[in-house]
Amino acid sequence: MSALSARRLWLPILLALACAAAILVLSRFLGEYGVHVLNTSLYYVILAASWNVLAGFTGRFSLAHQAFAAIGAYTSGLLATRYDLPLWVTIPAAVLAAILLGFLLGRLVLRMRAVYLAIATWAFAETIHILLTAAYAITRGELGLSVPPVFSDMDPRSYLYLFTGLAVVSVLGLHAFVRSPLGYFMRAIRDDELRAQSLGVDTVAIKTLVFTVTSGVAGLAGAFYGHYVVVLSPQIADFSEMAKIIVMVVVGGFGSFVGPLIGAPPVQILSSYLAKYGEWDMVIFAVVVIGFMRFNPGGLVDLVRAGWRRVRPTRS
């Protein structure tokens, strides 16, 4: 019999730190491009983990997550270039912008049924994408907006420390979020919203909070990512980015906390090395997603668990 209340609190922290150490050790054996791929993988780990809290845990299948990363990136980038503000001002401001827009969009769409919510969030993301492209007087559109880097030498290895730290903090924060009583409410809302409401759960408030927080996390990741790639383009808000996040979560394990953490890196690594063949990676991923959905909807997490059960020395 498992005691829910006796869960060890230090275990996730130790695991996260062990993963961070492994990443830093691994990077010693990688060239500059390899480290760059690691950096972008960590960016997607944050996006996938936060989207999974919204879609997998709470059952709200938003298609606007990449738009909040873009809002974070452009808010910080524009504040830094147009007003010469330091990054320690612009990045918190970018997170705030993502939180605010997340709250407003959440209020608007969270009363909708699943399909309508997906369509409305998709429309919102497309609007952001078009705005970033069309308002070229401000954003420089497809030409790209040059923004200052976090580290003046622009060394990917310096950024690796940054993104590793950011991923550890974000993932542990999200973990605390879903392990709190809020996590119970999220899953109750996903399973049966009316039942949750009839037992006294303020479902509107919980959904709005989850939408706002996960949007803020995406904004945070986007802001730092912008000051890493240093040239922002509307591509960051493109639907293909959202599709990639979905692929990562499905491959890793939809609705499992660990799923996106182990799903994002392989997808991003594959995608980076397939980039020279054009958009073919998405075709491959589509097939992989269909395969997982059909034969192993639990994702890699499920495979790992099943494998573990087979190799584990049999205990009584």
Partner: peptide
């Protein structure tokens, strides 16, 4: 009857 299907009885 409405229950939270993916949650345990205790949950």
């Amino acid at each position: 009857a409405r229950v939270f299907g993916d949650m345990s009885l205790v949950e």
